[in-house]
Amino acid sequence: MSWYEKHGPDQDVVISTRVRLARNIKGHLCPHLLDKTKTNQVIQEIVDGVEKIDPKSFRLVELESLNLTDKQTLAERHLISPQIINAKNNKALLINEEEDLSVLILDEDHLRIQAISAGFEPLETFDRANKLAVALESVLDIAYDPEFGYLTACPTNVGTGLRVSALLHVPGLEHSRQLKYIIESLRRSGFTVRGYYGEGSAEQGQMIQVSNQITLGETDQDLVNKFIRMLSVFIKQERQAREKWYSEDPIRLKDRIFRAKAILSEACLIGSEEAFNCLSYLRLGRALGFDDFPDYPEILTLIYLIGRGSIQKRSGKTLAGEKRDEARANLIKKHFVEINNSRRNHYDD
């Protein structure tokens, strides 16, 4: 079962929590300077290292061997960054079956150990990534300096190499126009706030990503704890904003939510932006406890399925604009039917 099919704590507001640990190997050039031969050599070295400590869990995906659609799909699931889709040099991904633990090889750094969980789960997610990182130090000559810590290609990651981030669903704060002030205060407190698809992307479907900015000067555990403290306040504020919205203007809010549900279950053509926004309202409806709304894992599964890459991957061919919107609408409809059927079967039991 993939991680996104599972439930997680505080999932009404937090969609997922990710932890990334950047590491490099001593004696090799940073990835952007490696030539073709060296690139494949370093990939092999890391793959062998991971195999030594865990020969069973991971499968290897070499980005060079993938087509554009496959790479887009990986980016839509936050397994690779969108920036490396068109990279010249080969890169690789070691990924486990649940897709919740992976090693991205030769992105900006030699290794990026990535763990992800549903809901708000920073400690557990950090532990999983950290265990793998610690184990890898016994088989790879990881570059570590007693003064600067783990050495990374970019000085913004040096020290712990830790980036902990959460994907938050914030329709309440956006509606109450508090969002931009909260984002400002998060930024002042040393957090980075970005759109759904990362650096430079727009805030899509009322979803934002928050992560720590500083990676050095505090221990990894202190950084994670600080992140938890900060985000816990944020989560409460979002819940309050939703309650206020629903108590002050229930009919118009319900209207938006049920319209969104109707579009998703009936539309014949739907673009990714509209689908995203409708799914956002569907999620809000679920959080407000409306009957017969899909559950969080079902909604997240849909979010992952409707991306450009995922849609085309499923249909097995490249689709242009309207064909893609048609495939997307059909896919969502089909899922709604499946969700309702499984409910009915469940009640029959």
Binding site: G149, G159, I214, G217
Partner: peptide, 12 residues
């Protein structure tokens, strides 16, 4: 950039 240059490692 980081407000500090001394890494603190919880293990080491």
């Amino acid at each position: 950039v980081q407000g500090d240059h001394l890494h603190r490692d919880s293990r080491r």
